[in-house]
Nucleic acid binder design. Sequence first.
DNA 1: CGTGCGAATTGACCCTGGTCAAGGCGCGCC
DNA 2: GGCGCGCCTTGACCAGGGTCAATTCGCACG
Lengths: 253, 253
Amino acid sequence: MHSKPLAGRLPEPPSPIADDGDESRFCGTCAFSSACIAAGYDKPELAELQCLVEHVGPFRAGEHIFRTGDPFRAIFAVRAGTVKTRMVDKEGREQVLGFYLPGEVIGLNAIYPEHFPCDAVALDTAYFCRFSFPAMSALASRIPAVQQHLFRMLSKELGTASLLAGDHSADERVAAFLLDLAGRYAVRGFSGTRFHLSMSRGDIANYLRLAAETVSRVLSRFRSQQLIEIEGRELELLNPKKLREIGQALLTE
Amino acid sequence: MHSKPLAGRLPEPPSPIADDGDESRFCGTCAFSSACIAAGYDKPELAELQCLVEHVGPFRAGEHIFRTGDPFRAIFAVRAGTVKTRMVDKEGREQVLGFYLPGEVIGLNAIYPEHFPCDAVALDTAYFCRFSFPAMSALASRIPAVQQHLFRMLSKELGTASLLAGDHSADERVAAFLLDLAGRYAVRGFSGTRFHLSMSRGDIANYLRLAAETVSRVLSRFRSQQLIEIEGRELELLNPKKLREIGQALLTE
DNA sequence: CGTGCGAATTGACCCTGGTCAAGGCGCGCC
DNA sequence: GGCGCGCCTTGACCAGGGTCAATTCGCACG
């Protein structure tokens, strides 16, 4: 099955497509890849990892992968498509917590409460690997690399949660957001300068704690300054260097 | 008197515990207690847990427990005192990430980067339990309860990180902050209605992404509305119910 | 092909909270 | 005691971005 040898544990050359039905290619971009590699593709333990993975999907735009309050049984790695997580308070106001691209993992924040504390909603047609968490925990006890990987993923997400924490201007937020997306696409092997925004302006604004109108205005201004080219949801970064200057307060901290 | 905090801090002679000197009482309030209890106080495994714990302190107000960039070797449970974590960007601006009370754990966000991504600074005289993380990981592999506990602590912190995420008014933020502190004190067995704010107005403001003046104004207003009594850093919640109404957008989400 | 609906853009106005500045309070120190 | 230094409070002013509203665009559907 995973005949393609991925030599060493260093960052492997990323593969451009995550959803072409070739599992080994997807796994190369997946957040679990280093755990798999550390476990060894041919060891019997990996068979167990395979065993507890289940492919689910497709979900269409707007469909829920999980809902607030659902009992926590598994975490999900995005195989294709994009997801937003959000909370809805009792007044019905939505709060976007994050966007997740192919290779990234959702559901980690449900371990402690044992119920999902937020919704996960597909933004376009999306497919997932579903990892049963009890099985994963048991496996982690036997394979230190898997345990360590889970610790690292959790800890990593602690770090990224602070991206939108600071009190920063709308320009800083939008610039940092675009660069963050670009970097995450690039790391998974997609273009880091041209990509599709699968979320609406409203979702971006909500995530950045701005008004949709403000996001629209900032993007227009960035375009008029030749920093980006944007048409609808198709984006190109024309001057990442300048954008980095604008957003650096958010990116370095 | 005593040496610089971080300069080669070595195992100290068992330092007196700040409150009552009874370790089992502290452990009852500590975030690790359920892991210890699950392991069984009398089982041999617990001896190992004891073994990898090291009591450190005292740290005086302003001293660092760890600094940004320090290699990650251990996590710390607060035994007494209060700590803030913060990042300082290259322009020298401080960003307060959180406050930690007795029984709570700092350093979890360093697992992934393997270096501390922030400073931890004592706000008053503080003592800690230091848990070697490699030893802790090894133990977690053998004792599922310990592993599960680490997962839960990490996941829990993911949830709290979003407390200050939303775009909320100054009143909402301050009310939610006070109630959050109150709840955390109550859960550890302290008074949930009267307590001491060990952090300055400036630290609170920075944490809540407000100006110090705004925090001051909101507290004054809350006092004039009979919601709280506050004198310097001594606080009493007079009307927690009303405060909860004000801050509920932040608390429920 | 028109219709209708949601997303996006743009403009006009206003409010929350930041900034600047001037005291007041507490406390350690000479 | 008097002084100095943070920390805190309070007031006056101002701007960044939210809100409201009108318009346009894209697209699904009858």
